[in-house]
Amino acid sequence: MALPAGSIPAGDTSYDRSYTGFSPSLGLTWKPLEDHTLYAAVSRSFEPPTHDDLIATVNGTPNSSAGRPNPAQPGLVSTAYRTPDLKAQTATTVEAGWRGRFGVVAVDAGTYYSWVKNELLSLRDATGASLGAVNADRTRHFGVDLGLSAFLTERLSGRIAYTFQDFRFQDDPVRGDNRLAGAPRHVINASARYDITGAWSVGAEVDWYPGRTPVDNMSSVYTDGYATVDLRSTYAINERVSVYGEARNIFDATYASSTLIVDQASPTQAVYLPGDGRAFYAGLKVSF
Results as ranks from 00 to 15, higher is better:
residue 241 V to A: 14
residue 257 S to M: 08
residue 130 S to N: 00
residue 64 S to L: 03
residue 194 Y to S: 12
residue 151 F to A: 11
residue 225 G to T: 09
residue 241 V to Q: 11
residue 52 D to A: 05
residue 75 G to T: 13
residue 8 I to G: 08
residue 172 D to K: 00
residue 34 E to T: 13
residue 126 A to G: 12
residue 216 D to G: 06
residue 216 D to E: 05
residue 60 G to N: 03
residue 137 D to K: 13
residue 71 P to I: 09
residue 192 A to G: 15
residue 14 S to V: 12
residue 153 T to C: 10
residue 97 G to P: 04
residue 188 I to P: 00
residue 169 F to Y: 10
residue 154 E to M: 06
residue 44 R to P: 10
residue 67 G to F: 01
residue 43 S to G: 06
residue 204 A to I: 09
residue 70 N to S: 12
residue 155 R to M: 00
residue 8 I to M: 05
residue 26 L to G: 13
residue 281 Y to V: 03
residue 117 K to V: 07
residue 246 E to V: 01
residue 268 T to W: 07
residue 190 A to T: 11
residue 44 R to L: 01
residue 239 E to D: 15
residue 123 L to Q: 13
residue 173 P to V: 03
residue 36 H to A: 14
residue 64 S to D: 10
residue 44 R to V: 06
residue 211 G to Q: 04
residue 231 L to R: 05
residue 180 L to F: 02
residue 10 A to S: 06
residue 249 N to T: 05
residue 67 G to D: 02
residue 193 R to M: 11
residue 75 G to M: 13
residue 148 L to A: 08
residue 139 T to M: 08
residue 77 V to K: 00
residue 202 V to H: 04
residue 46 F to V: 08
residue 122 S to D: 08
residue 216 D to K: 08
residue 215 V to A: 01
residue 6 G to Q: 09
residue 226 Y to F: 15
residue 43 S to E: 11
residue 18 S to V: 01
residue 259 T to Y: 04
residue 102 F to N: 13
residue 200 W to H: 02
residue 101 R to Y: 09
residue 1 M to Y: 14
residue 24 P to A: 13
residue 21 G to F: 11
residue 16 D to P: 01
residue 273 L to C: 00
residue 207 D to K: 14
residue 24 P to G: 03
residue 185 R to E: 15
residue 6 G to F: 03
residue 138 R to V: 14
residue 207 D to R: 15
residue 276 D to Y: 00
residue 1 M to S: 14
residue 187 V to T: 14
residue 203 G to T: 09
residue 46 F to P: 05
residue 116 V to C: 04
residue 1 M to N: 14
residue 150 A to I: 10
residue 165 Q to A: 15
residue 204 A to W: 12
residue 118 N to R: 03
residue 70 N to G: 06
residue 217 N to A: 09
residue 51 H to T: 15
residue 255 Y to E: 10
residue 8 I to K: 02
residue 102 F to L: 15
residue 260 L to A: 07
residue 135 N to W: 05
residue 241 V to Y: 05
residue 58 V to S: 07
residue 17 R to T: 07
residue 19 Y to D: 01
residue 94 V to M: 08
residue 52 D to I: 11
residue 278 R to K: 05
